[in-house]
Simulated scan of single mutants.
Amino acid sequence: VIIRENEEDLYGGIEHRQTREVTQVLKLISYPGTDSIVRYAFEYARAYGRRKVTCMTKDNIMKITDGLFHRVFNEVAREFPDIQAEHQIIDIGAARLAAAPETLDVIVTPNLYGDILSDVAAQLTGSVGLAGSSNIGREAAMFEAIHGSAPDIAGKGIANPSGLLQAAVHMLVHVGLGDTATLINNAWLRTLEDGVHTADIYREGLSRKRAGTDAFADAVIERLGREPERLRPARFQHASIVIPGAPKLAGRKELCGVDVFLDWNEGEREPARLGRQVEGLVPPPWKLQMITNRGVKVYPEGLPETFRTDHWRCRFVAEDGGAVDYGLVLDLLQRLHRGGLEVIQTENLYTFDGERGYSPGQGE
């Protein structure tokens, strides 16, 4: 079972083209969103007799965003001592899913990773057309096949209806009609077991009949009331899972610097030239700590072979390393503008209860 957060991460749809050469997308991971989905995963495991929940992130690289997801997972896991909890980096976790899916039980992960893993898991069973999905909210729920609309085969009568059928089974379980869900799912399993297969899963020597969309659905209907003989029959029952809202986080937040992003395309894009220009414009109490290009530190003491675009980040901090007033940020931006530099974005740098809330530059 793959449980993914379905509103945040890179799917917020916040994208910008910032320079002629560079675009960006904003990755959002929230504490309440993460707490809700992780708590749901553990409650689901407990309600349906699952023994293990595996969290998959990429927090060895994205230490703040995916790091938050991993940290909340660890916090919630301590409340469920009866459920085994483990974490894996997403790339090796995906490899494990492909090579040994039987070693996994419930997976909880941010939005993008879960979207990819769910298709991989479905394909391991034979086709992405076999799996359904549930979108569960506090006020409403929606159920759908995991795959897209497949416009290339629309109207041809060859699509596998199993994904939508499985989505309907999910819906019936959700609304408390587990017996009906069991009846339909077992008829579907018996149909597959009898070798009635749509084109996406049809195999010579294994399948007995190639069926179109309608014929496959009719075959399932004909088998209502029958159970599979070799596959494990389904036994569904509804379990009510109620997830409380996450508490609001409090604490001390202090502004300690600012990242200023520039569109700069002068000469051969020499970092030292830009660095000298910026330093000539910086007023006290600011200090130019570094300049990066595509996240890699290029000034001071950058590597000359680093590939550079027209998109630059200048990190400014107070000379004494302390907190600053936002009015000083506005003054800095005005000076950069008057100095002929094009500011395209800013990100304030904060500490939270004394802990840095931003990542270092690569090579810093």
Rank of each mutant, 00 (worst) to 15 (best):
N6C: 10
T19S: 07
T23W: 00
L26P: 02
I29D: 06
I29C: 07
A45C: 02
R46H: 09
A47W: 13
K52M: 03
T54F: 10
I61L: 05
V76A: 01
Q84K: 13
D91C: 04
I107Q: 00
G114S: 03
G114A: 07
D115R: 07
D115Y: 12
L117V: 04
S134L: 03
E139Y: 13
E139I: 12
E139R: 14
S149P: 06
D152W: 04
G157E: 01
N160H: 07
V173M: 07
H174Q: 12
V175H: 13
V175S: 12
N185A: 04
T198V: 01
D200K: 05
R203H: 09
R203W: 06
K209Q: 10
G212D: 02
E222D: 01
R226F: 13
L231T: 05
G245I: 00
L249A: 07
L249V: 09
K253C: 13
F261K: 14
L262E: 07
E268S: 11
L281P: 01
V282F: 04
W286H: 10
N293V: 03
R294W: 01
V298A: 02
F307N: 12
F307G: 12
F307C: 08
D310T: 11
G327H: 07
L341F: 01
L341K: 02
D353L: 08
Y358M: 04
G361Y: 05
